[in-house]
Design a protein around this nucleic acid. Structure first.
Lengths: 218, 218
DNA sequence: CGGTCTCCCTACCCGCAAGTAACCTGAGGC
DNA sequence: GCCTCAGGTTACTTGCGGGTAGGGAGACCG
């Protein structure tokens, strides 16, 4: 126990700004996902990040800004992951299948990101809601074009029973809610989850109870 | 402007406790739905209720307790509404259909209740999450028995592709998310909404793009 | 070796809203 | 008529947490 080994002040080592920002964002996502926006304190975030509070304000701005940064980063990650998984040249059902797999893969890997995006961001009205809506709109648009193009190819017009946007919203919602359910039932694998949803939305109950099953084909 | 018409102190008239409690809960739901749990202030709730703050503490307890009371009351309302709409003796698809109609009917009529239940309650971790999970479990159970019984009747066993609970969770989630989407697209009628969902989950995309349509039959 | 720029901290301010103490008042029983 | 208790209020305390002022220390350039 030499005198310079004392860990008392534990001043953080000098690091370049970009690295610190990443650390802070990681810590923020972690804390926000645990406690939610309001209950999360800047003190705790700075603590988890291993950095003092003024650094956060200096680098990422006030709490609102920080949260916005979190949402944007994680939303981009998610959408990139999904988009990367989709193969544009295969049949519509296989596109959906790959999209779903990528989605649940992301949720499994970045559980905290998902919680922040889904559970927390909805709650706080104002700027964040917009941020989230933009992301969801992108997701819905992704699915919507898929559905509509599949429908249009068969000459399906605008009917009350078939609204591309409505169906896409329902599908995206189903996928999100199943992901949410998954958080409390982690014993199921992501592939199985995607498979359930695929069977539900592609075949429908009617076919399912008849014993039909959807399976991916190469 | 006679002198006894002056409205200055506007002391609330004496009313029995049960009535006041109802007023307070109504006000609380209204304010919580507008601002969310954290941003809602007890002062504003008391103001909307037309009663002073200590009354709330005396009747319904602290903020947490108040919110819990709100959730419980609205959740019961919702579930009762859905359950009342289901006719136990008709075909499975018609049961689902009636359940969905009741659900969207409730959301339309008690918009604020729905916002509190869905958008707000998820956000605050802890006791409320449990409360909500209980409600959702009841909803999932409702749908689950429907699905499983429909499946079992045709001799469908436990397969990876067919989990009653998983499918029910996805379906409930889809219904919730579509309700959420509805909040920002109020020009669609509740019947149309239920019809979309019915087509999606009963027929599936595969049948839909083939031009098939599900319609209620008596 | 001095200037300066970036990184980083301790220590504080202060406003807002949850919760409470203490008191007022009218309605009914006896 | 007086006492009591439920209904109701004003005005306060308190603490938590967002946000900041002001200053220190190592690196790099000249």
């Amino acid at each position: 126990m030499s005198e310079e080994a004392k860990r008392s002040p534990e001043r953080a080592k000098r690091l370049p700004r970009s690295v610190r920002e990443k650390q802070i964002l990681d810590a923020a996502v972690r804390v926000f996902s645990r406690y939610g926006y309001h209950s999360a304190s800047m003190d705790e975030i700075s603590d988890v990040a291993g950095v003092s509070k003024p650094m956060i304000y200096s680098y990422l701005g006030a709490k609102e800004d920080l949260f916005t940064h979190c949402i944007r980063r994680e939303a981009n990650r998610l959408l990139e992951a999904v988009q990367a998984g989709i193969k544009p040249d295969v049949a519509p059902d296989m596109q959906l299948w790959h999209g779903l797999r990528s989605f649940y893969g992301f949720v499994a890997e970045y559980r905290e990101s998902w919680i922040v995006l889904h559970r927390q961001a909805l709650t706080v009205g104002g700027p964040f809601a917009d941020e989230i809506n933009v992301m969801r709109s992108r997701a819905v648009a992704l699915v919507s074009t898929l559905v509509v193009s599949a429908g249009a190819r068969r000459g399906l017009g605008h009917q009350a029973e078939f609204s591309g946007e409505g169906l896409a919203a329902a599908l995206v919602g189903a996928a999100e809610s199943l992901a949410d359910w998954w958080l409390d039932h982690s014993d199921v694998s992501d592939g199985v989850l995607a498979s359930w949803l695929m069977n539900l939305v592609w075949l429908g109950f009617n076919d399912l109870v008849e014993g039909e099953v959807w399976r991916p084909v190469e």
